[in-house]
Simulated assay, not measured.
Amino acid sequence: QPGEWLLYTVIVSHSGEYQVRVRAASASINQSILHFEIDGVNVTGNVTIPNTGGWQSWTTVYSRTFKLDSGVHFVKMCIDSGGCNLNKFYILPPNASPLINLIFPNGGEIFVPDSVVEIKWKSQLVDRVMVGFSPSGVGNWTLVQDSVTAKFGVYRWLVPNIVSSTCRLLVMSENDRSVSDTCQTFFIQVTTGVNNNIETAKGYLLEQNFPNPFNPSTSIVYSVPKDTFVTLEVYDVTGRRVATLVRNFVLAGTHSVLFKGDDLASGVYLYRFESDNFQKTNKMVLTK
């Protein structure tokens, strides 16, 4: 209703040109008008929501473009006249298109049959996704879940009771199958001594550090499916070891380690994870 407003805090990663895309519905006789303020400044002017023919008949309207610097900002949506149902709004570059980026698995992981793995992705301009699985890695996708809310970015998957070294997962837009992403091949295999209780069992994994690039510190997350010995070390591009983050016996589960690069020069570094027969190396970038 006129006079109502909503306030949000947003983090902008890159400075540049942006616009607001609003998905709304209205059965008002007159058009509804709203505007968006960023840090107290009206950056969009009037954004008009037409009569869409029903309170659940959704349409997307676009604001004019505006400049936005990187950092933390306060966004206020204000209703000026009329009335509408607001489904969602995005603040995106004008040329932004639907996108899905599958983050985990990303290839090389080892999962245990009947364990539970969290499939993770990032998306933009996608409402719902489908998740598929291929044990051969070359297609023949089996539908795992047909409708998952995209913005949550995670789906808990029960690993099938098979053994394969060429498994792949797919995350695809429910409305546009050209918008999708697949991971590199990973393993499903039986590992001696692992508790296969679906509430507790996990695969060996090494996640991408966050944030990346970083300055001066970043977090590295890894998981092991049983109590075991773990080594996690950091190397520069010449192969010189610059830090040993973990070199001891750890309990089963997910662990997070903070790496500090205060005394290191800017550049690419490699962090290597070893546990039992599982090994994996990821890259990270230190920028100062």
Score class of each variant (00 low, 15 high):
residue 3 G to K: 12
residue 5 W to P: 00
residue 7 L to Q: 13
residue 9 T to M: 09
residue 14 H to V: 13
residue 17 E to D: 15
residue 19 Q to L: 14
residue 20 V to G: 10
residue 25 A to C: 04
residue 30 N to S: 12
residue 38 I to P: 03
residue 38 I to W: 00
residue 38 I to V: 12
residue 40 G to W: 00
residue 40 G to L: 03
residue 41 V to M: 11
residue 42 N to M: 08
residue 44 T to K: 12
residue 48 T to H: 11
residue 56 Q to Y: 12
residue 57 S to A: 09
residue 66 F to R: 10
residue 69 D to K: 12
residue 71 G to P: 08
residue 76 K to F: 07
residue 81 S to T: 04
residue 86 L to F: 12
residue 86 L to C: 03
residue 95 N to D: 15
residue 96 A to V: 08
residue 98 P to L: 09
residue 100 I to S: 04
residue 102 L to E: 06
residue 113 P to L: 00
residue 115 S to Y: 02
residue 119 I to H: 01
residue 123 S to N: 07
residue 124 Q to F: 08
residue 128 R to W: 11
residue 133 F to H: 02
residue 142 T to G: 06
residue 144 V to H: 00
residue 146 D to C: 05
residue 150 A to E: 09
residue 157 W to I: 14
residue 159 V to R: 01
residue 167 C to I: 00
residue 168 R to G: 06
residue 171 V to R: 03
residue 171 V to C: 08
residue 180 S to C: 06
residue 181 D to R: 00
residue 183 C to E: 02
residue 183 C to Y: 00
residue 188 I to Q: 09
residue 193 G to H: 06
residue 203 G to P: 01
residue 206 L to D: 01
residue 210 F to C: 14
residue 217 S to P: 01
residue 217 S to L: 09
residue 219 S to E: 13
residue 227 D to F: 02
residue 230 V to G: 00
residue 235 Y to T: 00
residue 239 G to H: 07
residue 241 R to Y: 03
residue 244 T to P: 02
residue 245 L to H: 08
residue 261 G to M: 06
residue 263 D to C: 07
residue 263 D to S: 15
residue 265 A to Q: 09
residue 267 G to Y: 04
residue 270 L to V: 05
residue 274 E to Q: 15
residue 277 N to L: 10
residue 282 N to A: 13
residue 285 V to S: 06
residue 286 L to A: 05
residue 287 T to V: 14
